[in-house]
Computed example of a mutant assay.
Amino acid sequence: MNSNRVLQVESITKVYGKDDNKTEALRGISFDVLEGEFLGIMGASGSGKTTLLNCIATMIKPTSGKIMLKHRNISSFKGGQLADYRGKEIGYLFQEFELLDNLTAKENIILPLSLHGITGKQAESKLYELANRLDIVGVLDKFPSQMSGGQKQRVAAARSLISNPSIVLADEPTGALDSKNSKILMDKLSKINKEHQKTIVMVTHDANVASYCSRILFIQDGCLFHELRKNIETENTDNFYERIITVIAQMGGGSANVL
């Protein structure tokens, strides 16, 4: 893994409402993400993990603090800068796929490229490379209604990767999948992360899914509660899973409470 910092989150806070109705969703969270890292974010429902991901995605603006992507302060981006960041620097993988029903898999995947004027052979070669890696060549001409949930999420994964973003943000990517399709998706994402040094930041409630990560941040009440690093050389996913479960139990309420 590269030691270059691709993302720096510095003292991020997010406050909703005022006075008696004030809710502090994030309370001064700071961390770095290295290039090629697969970072998991876990925490109970309402802990702030999705708020944090949406701040990085610029879907919401933090109340204070700053977020740096490749040493550029994305919190200050406006207009064209913001559109470029969303279109080229980040890929977003949603829980519910968010595919356009009236487009084929192929059209859904290359949509981010066509929005930025990249068409023809360049788009086609990227498309087929990703389709092969994610095992979705057979559904490229199908519409979402003709695909299984697992196929839809792998098409969505291809769409998030097609513009070769600096970072992929995944929000509960297996949340709508059964265990078999969850494993297929995570095996594919893990392989892409390792072989192509693709940086991924993923929110998940599932300890099995989290065990694919190289590092996990646990968030509780808008603050960092704990951090786990996988020993890449000596630790397999089963061992890492056991350590994840231990931390979840320490957070209170057992694994069922970490949503």
Rank of each mutant, 00 (worst) to 15 (best):
Ser179Arg: 14
Thr119Arg: 12
Asn132Tyr: 06
Ile192Gly: 05
Arg133Asn: 08
Thr204Tyr: 01
Leu169Arg: 02
Ile192Thr: 07
Ala157Val: 09
Lys106Trp: 01
Met186Trp: 05
Glu107Cys: 03
Ile184Phe: 06
Thr204Asp: 00
Lys194Glu: 13
Ile184Gly: 03
Asp171Tyr: 08
Gln151His: 04
Leu115Tyr: 12
Arg133Glu: 06
Asn132Gly: 14
Val139Ala: 06
Ala131Asp: 09
Leu113Ala: 10
Asp135Thr: 14
Glu172Ser: 14
Ala131Arg: 09
Lys198Trp: 04
Leu185Cys: 03
Val139Asn: 07
Ser125Leu: 12
Ser179Cys: 05
Thr174Lys: 03
Ala210Cys: 10
Leu161Thr: 05
Leu140Asn: 07
Ile136Asp: 02
Ile118Ser: 01
Ser160Leu: 04
Gln151Thr: 06
Ser160Pro: 14
Leu111Trp: 09
Thr204Gly: 02
Glu124Gly: 02
Ser190Lys: 05
Val203Arg: 00
Val203Met: 01
Lys191Asn: 13
Asp187Phe: 10
Thr199Ile: 04
Leu161Lys: 04
Glu172Ala: 13
Pro165Phe: 06
His205Tyr: 13
Lys180Arg: 15
His205Cys: 10
Leu127Arg: 11
Ile184Ser: 04
Thr199Met: 01
Lys142Glu: 08
Ala210Val: 11
His196Ile: 05
Leu177Val: 13
Val137Phe: 00
Asn108Ala: 00
Asn181Thr: 15
Val155Cys: 07
Lys126Ile: 09
Ala210His: 04
Ala156Arg: 08
Ser179Lys: 14
Thr204Cys: 02
Ser148Cys: 09
Asp206Gln: 06
Gln153Ile: 11
Arg154Asn: 09
Ala176Glu: 13
Lys188Glu: 06
Asp141Gly: 15
Gly138Leu: 09
Ala105Glu: 00
Leu103Gln: 09
Glu172Trp: 14
Arg154Cys: 09
Leu127His: 10
Gly120Asp: 11
Asp101Trp: 02
Leu134Asp: 01
Lys126Ala: 13
Asn132Cys: 06
Leu115Thr: 05
Asp171Lys: 07
Gly138Asn: 15
Asp206His: 01
Ala176Cys: 09
Gly117Thr: 11
Glu195Ala: 10
Gln151Tyr: 01
Gln146Thr: 08
Ile167Gln: 04
Gly149Gln: 03
Glu195Tyr: 07
Gln153Arg: 07
Ile167Glu: 02
Arg159Tyr: 12
Val201Asp: 00
Ala207Glu: 09
Asn108Glu: 00
Asp141Arg: 11
Asn132Met: 02
Arg133Leu: 11
Thr204Gln: 01
Lys183Phe: 12
Met147Ala: 10
Ser160His: 08
Gly149Trp: 06
Ile109Arg: 02
Asp187Ala: 07
Leu127Phe: 12
His116Ile: 13
Ala207Tyr: 08
Ala131Gln: 09
Ser166Trp: 00
Leu113Asp: 07
Lys191Met: 11
Asp135Glu: 15
Asn193Cys: 10
Asp171Val: 08
Ala170Leu: 11
Ser160Cys: 10
His196Asn: 14
Ala131Lys: 08
Asn164Pro: 10
Thr119Ala: 00
Glu172Leu: 12
Leu134Thr: 09
Asp101Val: 07
Met186Ile: 01
Arg154Glu: 07
Val155Ala: 03
Ala157Trp: 01
Ile192Tyr: 04
Ser182Ile: 05
Lys188Val: 06
